[in-house]
Amino acid sequence: MSKFIRSLAVALSGIGFAFRTQGHMRFHMIAGLVACCLGLIVTLKPLEWAIILLAIAVVISAEMINTAVEQAVNLASPDIHPIAKTAKDVAAGAVLIAAVISAVIGLLIIGPPLWHLFF
């Protein structure tokens, strides 16, 4: 059990690092919180919640992987190098794709009931 608790502490430390050091991570967390609040307002069904929460998890996970890639590349290649730039750019692109698709998912699921609520 103590090994599990240590593993949990290490994982929470990684989440904390990403949250403290990455502005985009904070943005994605706030966007996820806003999506959840809107989901409560429009009373999403369980399957809709599952899809929204999965989309949020994918974006936050992608952002954390991007942070890990950036940190590893910075360690391995402290000087500017085209391959290091490519690695960072590809990781950032993965986050962008996840975020855009998640926004579309949010609009498709939360958008219509929110629209009917106000109009």
Rank of each mutant, 00 (worst) to 15 (best):
M1R: 12
M1Q: 07
M1T: 09
S2R: 15
S2W: 06
S7R: 10
L8W: 13
V10R: 11
A11P: 00
A11G: 00
S13R: 14
G14L: 08
I15S: 10
A18I: 09
A18M: 07
F19G: 02
R20V: 14
G23V: 06
G23S: 11
H24G: 14
M25Q: 05
R26C: 06
R26K: 14
F27N: 15
H28I: 07
M29N: 09
M29V: 15
A31K: 05
A31H: 02
V34N: 06
A35E: 03
C36V: 15
C37L: 15
L38P: 01
L38I: 13
L40P: 04
V42S: 06
T43F: 12
K45T: 12
P46Y: 06
P46N: 07
L47E: 14
E48H: 09
E48R: 09
W49Q: 05
W49H: 07
I51G: 01
I51K: 05
L53I: 12
L54W: 07
L54V: 11
A55F: 00
A55M: 02
I56S: 00
I56G: 02
V58I: 10
V58W: 01
I60K: 03
S61G: 12
E63H: 05
E63R: 08
M64Q: 04
I65F: 03
I65L: 08
N66S: 11
T67F: 10
A68M: 09
V69Q: 00
E70T: 11
A72H: 09
V73C: 00
L75D: 05
L75F: 13
L75A: 15
A76L: 12
A76G: 13
S77F: 13
P78D: 14
P78E: 15
P78R: 12
I80W: 13
H81C: 07
H81G: 07
H81E: 15
I83E: 11
I83H: 10
A84F: 03
A84P: 00
K85Q: 14
T86N: 14
A87R: 15
A87L: 13
D89S: 13
A92W: 05
G93C: 02
G93N: 10
V95Q: 02
I97F: 02
A99T: 12
S102H: 03
A103D: 08
A103W: 06
V104C: 09
L107N: 04
L108T: 09
L108S: 05
I109A: 01
G111L: 02
P112Y: 01
P113R: 06
P113F: 05
L114N: 06
W115Y: 13
W115G: 05
H116D: 11
L117Y: 05
L117C: 04
F118R: 15
